[in-house]
Structure formats: structure tokens, C-alpha cells
Amino acid sequence: MPLEEQGALTEAVFYILLTLHKPLHGYGIMQGVQELTKDRLTLGPGTLYGALNTLAEKGWIQAFKSKQDSRRKEYIITDLGKSVFQRELKRLEELLTHGKLVNGRKGL
């Protein structure tokens, strides 16, 4: 795996990819993330907008053409984005498993 493709996704990117498994516009993503994390994570509009542009450039998400003529631009995750997301989930699962293992052992 090339170096650029290694490492953790930022929390913002992770939650953007997660919420975009269904089409959403920018404000919808902000609300979705806030609900999911019970207000722990509030995406700043500058952070979100910058990330959306970068992710679209990378082809992890794309503009979603909705049937009703909507002014607001909606996005949806691409197949490439889904595979990146799945890889990240695996990585996180590994972390979690190992972390719990330590918790289970006494006197470490």
C-alpha cells in the first residue's frame, strides 16, 4: 500500500463517509454527525466544506443528482469511498480488539 493510503482517516472524513451512505447536502451532514455523536463532534462549516471538495477530487464521494430540482448540492459516497471506509473500519476494529484485550488482563 503506498504511504499516502496508509494511516487513519480524520474524524471529520470518517463521519462524512459514514453519513454519505445516503445522499445528503452539507448541512444534512453536519446535523447527522451531531446527532450520531450526541453533540460531541460538531463539524465546522469551513472544515466540512474543505473536506467535501477534497473527497470529491479524490473520487471518494460524488455529487448526487436528485430527481427533484434542488438548489442544494447533495453528495453520496462512491464505490472507492466505500472500500476506503471498510478498510478504515477494519483498522479501527483491530485497535478496539487489542485495546479490550489489555482491559481484560489484570496486572499489566
Binding site: T10, E11, A12, L41, T42, L43, G44, P45, G46, T47, L48, G50, A51
Partner: peptide, 12 residues
Amino acid sequence: DGPFEIFSDRES
């Protein structure tokens, strides 16, 4: 309407 920050992470 809640706290207002334009950037919510270090990178941005």
C-alpha cells in the same frame, strides 16, 4: 443556535 467555530480540526 450553539457554538460557532469555522474549523473543527487541526488540519483545516
